[in-house]
Amino acid sequence: MPTLLLVDGSSYLYRAFHAMPDLRTSQNEPTGAIHGVLNMLRRLESDYQASGIDYKGCVFDAKGRTFRDDWYPQYKANRPPMPEDMVRQIEPLHAAIVALGWPLLMCDGVEADDVIGTLTTQAAAQGVQVVVSTGDKDLAQLVGPHVSLINTMSNEVLDEAGVLGKFGVPAERIVDYLALIGDAVDNVPGVDKVGAKTAVKWLAQYGSLDGVIA
């Protein structure tokens, strides 16, 4: 079975920037996030070299607004602007990723998540095994018989059983679960006074968000 390896570059850029020390060149240019992301990519390829990678891609958010901003103007409105030292690392990071032989994907008007979700769904439907490397919990909704998530910063691997064990709901109910609890990171409110335990209880009892509403 062929394997597609997709990397959520934007997720790892943020995490590497905050996790890595403030590394700099002799010209005082910041390089910590670049170093962290490139190490992650090399490690990923090394880990999957034995089993073989038939297709791969590294996906980043494109500049500018997305359809979510039109749907919900408060989306991510709580986030401060991207730090200047992170901004300065984006273009050289993209160039380094391409130099390593990775296809680099960015699509205007959508986020990296959307591109990854589309490619994953299409590939899995064609019988391709998909491994998504990310630290983003939202992508747990993609997990299925042909799809798993790996977080190289925590060594966590999520298959169907892993998603159920971590969140208390199966992958196909992750969207319902997040709709109930909201997402403070993205400034998306959930149902008032509904936390993770209540959401898991309701979804177990009523089967789906539609069941809860009914």
Rank of each mutant, 00 (worst) to 15 (best):
Y12A: 05
Y12L: 12
Y12C: 03
L13K: 04
L13R: 00
Y14W: 10
Y14T: 03
Y14Q: 12
Y14K: 08
R15W: 09
R15Q: 04
R15K: 08
A16T: 04
A16S: 04
A16E: 04
F17T: 13
F17K: 06
F17L: 08
H18E: 09
H18D: 07
H18R: 12
H18T: 10
A19G: 07
A19D: 05
A19T: 05
A19Y: 10
M20L: 09
M20P: 11
M20D: 11
M20N: 10
M20W: 09
P21S: 03
P21V: 04
D22C: 15
D22W: 12
L23G: 08
R24A: 08
R24I: 10
T25E: 00
T25S: 08
T25H: 02
T25K: 10
T25L: 03
T25P: 03
S26V: 14
S26T: 13
S26F: 14
S26M: 15
S26H: 15
Q27A: 09
Q27H: 12
Q27G: 14
Q27M: 14
N28K: 14
E29N: 03
E29K: 11
E29L: 05
E29T: 06
E29F: 05
E29Q: 07
E29P: 00
P30R: 03
P30W: 05
P30C: 03
P30V: 02
G32K: 11
G32S: 06
G32Y: 05
G32M: 09
G32P: 06
G32W: 06
A33P: 02
I34N: 04
I34Q: 01
I34Y: 09
I34T: 02
H35F: 13
G36P: 05
G36Q: 00
G36W: 00
V37Q: 01
V37L: 07
V37F: 02
L38C: 09
L38P: 12
L38D: 08
L38K: 11
N39F: 10
N39S: 10
M40A: 13
M40W: 12
L41Q: 00
L41Y: 01
L41F: 01
R42G: 14
R42E: 14
R42I: 15
R42T: 15
R43W: 13
R43F: 10
R43A: 12
L44H: 00
L44F: 02
E45V: 07
E45H: 06
E45Y: 02
S46I: 13
S46R: 15
